[in-house]
Design a binder for these strands. Structure first.
Lengths: 120, 120
DNA sequence: TTGACATGAAACCTTAGGGTGTCATATACT
DNA sequence: AGTATATGACACCCTAAGGTTTCATGTCAA
């Protein structure tokens, strides 16, 4: 048995599926996609308390969906979209169950816009 | 008699995000993708009781992810992948962040007017 | 009809989860 | 130094969620 609390930022302690289950957390992700924000600024967009928001931020961070960066006395959070890939992979499994015609087109589109931009 | 139960199969009572948050339920979806199955057969693959499995099935059904069909004395469940589209749409929003050459540029622009304001 | 099987419903238990308020600490401002 | 700001850590609360057991109902097989 290896317990030893192995949670070195890399292996999410929190399941992504569970992390995005809460509407508030999805709103947070959406909000933090465009720009990095400190906790107080973030929580001004919610009706719940700052502490509650902070907890959600923690959960998302534990899931690897946010990165935190201390700037002076504030902690700024930003979207880290990588773990969403797991979701995407999970969803991809069910592609075959959708309408197959649409699926074929969809894959085609995805594959063609995913392989470029290899500069700078 | 139709008693106007405000949940006519179409508008899920249960959020898809929440429905898939539970690992057991994801396993159920996976299991019921290939073939329709009755409850007892399904629950034989789980360590929890049949009743517990039944509850999960109910939740998934309420989320529109499963359809149930009575055959004799058994109720067979089958995957209904349609609601997963909502997930896919949600994920699609974050596509722009995955390939983030463009995002890096964006951040650079943003940071030049905001985040470096603190001078030593 | 009687009995076995399949399942949902109801009552209940326990824990996790989302929320609040208070406090401690670190940084910034003057 | 002294105060205000930003935030995380705690200690709690309350409800929802996952789980179990028991019971009722419906269907199949003799």
């Amino acid at each position: 048995m290896e317990q030893a609390k192995p949670n070195p930022d890399n292996k999410p302690a929190m399941d992504v599926f569970q992390a995005i289950a809460d509407p508030s957390r999805r709103k947070l992700l959406e909000m933090l996609g465009d720009e990095e924000m400190p906790v107080t600024a973030i929580s001004s967009h919610f009706s719940m308390t700052r502490t509650a928001v902070s907890k959600h931020l923690r959960i998302l961070t534990d899931a690897g969906l946010l990165t935190e960066r201390k700037v002076g006395r504030e902690t700024r959070y930003r979207l880290e979209p990588a773990p969403l890939q797991e979701l995407k992979r999970w969803l991809a499994y069910y592609d075959r169950f959708w309408d197959n015609k649409m699926l074929a087109l969809q894959r085609y589109v995805e594959s063609s816009d995913d392989s470029q931009t290899s500069s700078s």
